[in-house]
Design a protein around this nucleic acid. Structure first.
Lengths: 336, 336
DNA sequence: CGCGTTTACGTCGTTCGTAACGATA
DNA sequence: TATCGTTACGAACGACGTAAACGCG
């Protein structure tokens, strides 16, 4: 048995049992891949795949178990390389992050600026998508970190570190009736207006819709989008009242928009950063987590290296209070 | 990186960082091993070992992590072979069992006879030793199953399946005063006589000594041995009263010895069979467990394949009542 | 006949064992 | 000088890629 045979095996599986496609992906010749598979099957004394003529057509029961273990092996091979690289070239490597628009647009810029200044040689890859798309990238082992809100059920193969809380903000054009409200805004007030908010992808059941329903209200959602910038654009057009994540409030918006704090109106959300249980975290990766979730102590970061279950993580952060993230830092002008 | 390099690496570590010894163990040349280590270190870009002159003298920090992962990889390689072998040659393989004398001499013969008749082609290796020696064999990954009583703290890397309970039996020469006792035997009665029993290797603190101490008694242990046959021999010589595991009562003993049930005098013991968490169990191994612990159902056996923590095992057997093992099957004659 | 796999074969790089050399205590 | 590791080198082996054949739809 050779590591290369296992690598080829996984490539075949990951390319729909098409040896030619696997060979292309591996930048090698098709007969070579074919031969190594044959050799592996001969050594193990069994067929890993069922055949239909010459083509591979399915995976045998034992084959499935073997493939699973082969994945584990290749993962550990990567981990060995990681440990070694971390040792002799702390500063070099790559970091792939998958996240949603809100994080990528409003939260990560500061984090990434700081990270880049510290690790100029680490190449960064930011992948953006819905929670489901992020989960797919996780499953394909294409990313190092996933950052999202809620949707924990989609990410059971990751360890999730809770990073911060956030509330919603109501975005309206300047001079909108809601800005003249003397008292605290209520859901009833909101239900009076057409609403513009996120496509309900995160959190499964929309916590937003439920908040209205709990008060017997049915909101008039006239438009949904996946990102706050689009929502704001339509709010500017007067299409309706925007409901966005508090981080999505931009200081620049204040020229023509007013953000109203919606703290308490909707359940508070928690954003987490997650990484695969079975992957070695390099130094710069740990530092990234700490930059993203600054409340995490150096001690906690070091302990994370060895933890392998979500229960361990939960225990580690049990007594930690998460920060609450707002949007525009210039508080005075927001109030004005 | 090649699997062979990892294999060589582990051989070096397991032979006290002596490359020559590792090469001998691997049935290959010393320069070959040396070279592959060099290549591995070059590929990883770091030293796995510290050197003193040319000799290896220690393991670097990162090296230790890498060695650990290499072990995992080689284990999974073995597991892949196991899965394959189980698939195409159910009947062939080997089975190494480490256990104490009592099991090997009195309990396993029946189990192994049955096992051999079912799997004639599986080569059996029975290793005998104290709990500590068994633990060493487990650590060296030399055995498939460990069977012992108590001593759970020594076997945290194994999953332990509780198999049966047993009490002690008191062994005396025929016509001994204790055989003429009209009432139930007590510890006070026993404390009157010199005692012959096991070396206190299993269970750490001797539960036997404690039982006496709890009643303010100090037993006069005149002789200890590691196995019941030796104890019986000395009981026959009139050295003292023997205290042995109930399984150690042999029907043949009745010619010149009398066994007295000591149920209730000492805490009941539980014998378990354990296997490494990280090893694939082959069909014949599962069958062996079932032969050894017949109260385990086929369903439970199948589930064991996927369980990986002791808590899972405990849960699986929570509602199972263990059998109580005695010695000589011919009850009537024992009473006589 | 197109698609995908297997077979055949020449080339090239790697591994292996032997033998000689080097370093250490 | 005994022990242990490295270097050197020729032989054997294995992996790779190209070209051609095969089997299936």
């Amino acid at each position: 048995m050779k590591l290369q045979q296992l690598k080829y095996l996984l490539a075949i599986v990951d390319n729909g049992l098409n040896i030619t496609a696997a060979a292309d992906r591996l930048y090698t010749s098709q007969p070579g891949v074919s031969k190594q598979l044959k050799l592996l099957e001969e050594e193990l004394g069994m067929q890993l795949f069922t055949r239909k003529g010459k083509s591979l057509h399915g995976i045998t029961d034992a084959g499935a178990q073997i493939i699973e273990r082969a994945r584990l092996i290749m993962q550990e091979v990567d981990n060995i390389r990681s440990v070694a690289s971390d040792y002799y070239q702390e500063e070099q490597g790559s970091l792939a992050i998958a996240t949603t628009h809100t994080q990528a647009r409003y939260v990560l810029p500061d984090v990434i600026r700081e990270f880049r200044s510290r690790y100029a040689k680490v190449s960064l890859n930011l992948h953006q998508g819905t929670s489901e798309q992020i989960a797919d990238m996780v499953a394909a082992n294409e990313i190092d970190f996933a950052i999202a809100t809620g949707s924990r059920h989609l990410f059971s193969s990751l360890l999730l570190v809770p990073s911060y809380h956030w509330d919603r903000k109501i975005i309206v054009p300047k001079g909108h009736p809601l800005t003249r409200l003397e008292r605290k805004l209520t859901l009833h007030d909101l239900a009076e207006f057409p609403l513009v908010t996120y496509v309900f992808s995160f959190g499964g059941q929309s916590s937003l819709k439920r908040a209205f329903a709990d008060q017997g209200l049915e909101p008039d959602v006239v438009f949904t989008a996946r990102d706050a910038d689009v929502i704001k654009t339509y709010v500017r057009m007067g299409l309706g009242v925007g409901i966005v994540a508090s981080m999505a409030e931009d200081c620049d918006d204040q020229k023509d928009l007013t953000a109203i704090d919606a703290e308490g109106l909707f359940p508070r959300s928690t954003t987490w950063i997650g990484f695969r249980k079975d992957v070695v975290l390099r130094r710069y990766m740990l530092d990234f987590v700490q930059l993203f979730a600054p409340h995490v102590t150096a001690d906690q970061i070091d302990k994370m290296r060895s933890l392998r279950t979500q229960a361990d993580i939960d225990k580690l952060f049990r007594d930690t209070t998460l920060p609450l993230r707002g949007g525009c830092k210039d508080k005075a002008s927001v109030e004005a």
